[in-house]
C-alpha cells in the first residue's frame, strides 16, 4: 500500500499571533478554574524537533492539553513551532477544528506527525487517544496506551527524542462510567476510527452518551510533570525492540503518575 502523505499546507494554519492573543483566556481557565501546575518544562530541549508523549485525560475537552499548551507557549514563546495531534473527528468539528488549527493542532496520522517533526517542530501526541481519554474515572491513575507503538516507530524513524508528559487530574473533570466499546461497535462507529462511545456524568447535562456536546469541566486541580528526554537509539541501540521500549516508556510514565496521584489528598480538589 502506498504510504500516506501529509497535506502540503498542513503546517500553515498555525497562527502565533492568534495563540498569543488567546493565552490570557487559557491562563484564566488554567489558573483560576484548574489551579494547574506544570513542572519540568526545562526538560524539553530548547530547540529542534521533539516528540512529547502524554497520557490523555478529561474526555474530548482534555483540559490538561490546553494547560500544557499554555505553559509550552509561555515558556518557549509562541514563536516556537508546536503542533498537537488530534482525532480526525475533533478536527472535523465545526468551529472547534478551525480554532484548534490556529493553535497548531493537526489531524493525528504518522505522515502528519513526521511532517511536523521534519520541520523542526515540537509535536504532542497522545498514543492512548480516545481509548485512554475515555477510560472509566476509577482508572484515572492508569497510563493506558492500549499497546499502541506508533509513537515509538515515529521516534525511531525520525531520530527525535521522546519527552514524556504525565498529567493527573484531567480525568476528574468529568465522571466516565464506561467507555462504551460494545455500543460503539454495535453502531458501527469503528468505521470512523471511533472505538468507544463513552457514557459519562457531566455538568450540566447529567448522563451523556458520547462526548460531543460542550460541557463544563469539574474544577479539578491539574498537575503535569515533564520528564527528561528519552533517546530510543541511545537507550536501546540501533534497532530498538518495540516491546522493550514500550514497557520502558509506559512504566516510567506510570511511576510518575503514581507519584503525582500520591500527592493528591482529595479528588477534584487535589
Amino acid at each position: 500500500m502506498a504510504r500516506e502523505e501529509a497535506p502540503p499546507n498542513l503546517l500553515d494554519d498555525r497562527d502565533p499571533d492568534y495563540i498569543r492573543d488567546t493565552l490570557p483566556a487559557a491562563w484564566l481557565l488554567a489558573t483560576l478554574w484548574h489551579r494547574a501546575e506544570i513542572r519540568g518544562l526545562e526538560n524539553i530541549p530548547d530547540d529542534g524537533p521533539v516528540l512529547l508523549v502524554g497520557n490523555h485525560s478529561g474526555g474530548n475537552t482534555s483540559p490538561d492539553s490546553f494547560a500544557f499548551a499554555l505553559a509550552f507557549a509561555s515558556y518557549f514563546g509562541v514563536e516556537r513551532r508546536f503542533y498537537q495531534l488530534a482525532h480526525k473527528l475533533v478536527m472535523a468539528s465545526p468551529g472547534i477544528g478551525a480554532f484548534l488549527k490556529k493553535h497548531g493542532t493537526i489531524e493525528a496520522s504518522h505522515a502528519n506527525a513526521e511532517a511536523a517533526l521534519s520541520a523542526g517542530a515540537a509535536v504532542l501526541v497522545y498514543p492512548g487517544g480516545d481509548w485512554e481519554v475515555h477510560r472509566p474515572s476509577w482508572q484515572s491513575g492508569r497510563v493506558d496506551f492500549a499497546g499502541r507503538t506508533g509513537f515509538l516507530k515515529l521516534a525511531i524513524r525520525t531520530g527525535v527524542p521522546i519527552v514524556p508528559v504525565v498529567s493527573v487530574g484531567g480525568q476528574e473533570t468529568l465522571f466516565v462510567l464506561t467507555r462504551g466499546e460494545a455500543l460503539s461497535k454495535a453502531l458501527g462507529l469503528h468505521r470512523f476510527r471511533l472505538k468507544v462511545l463513552p457514557i459519562s456524568l457531566v455538568i450540566p447535562w447529567g448522563v451523556t452518551v458520547g462526548d460531543f456536546i460542550p460541557r463544563l469541566p469539574f474544577p479539578a486541580k491539574l498537575t503535569t510533570q515533564v520528564l527528561p528526554p528519552i533517546d530510543l537509539h541511545e537507550k536501546f541501540g540501533d534497532d530498538p525492540d518495540l516491546d522493550e521500549a514500550y514497557d520502558y516508556v509506559t512504566t516510567t510514565m506510570q511511576s510518575t503518575l503514581d507519584a503525582l496521584a500520591g500527592e493528591r489528598r482529595f479528588p477534584v480538589l487535589g
Binding site: D21, L23, P24, W27, T31
Partner: peptide, 15 residues
Amino acid sequence: QAPGGLLGWVVDQIG
C-alpha cells in the same frame, strides 16, 4: 502588559 485586550487586562490585575 499581557496580550489579548480586555482578558489580558484582567490577567494583569490578577497576576
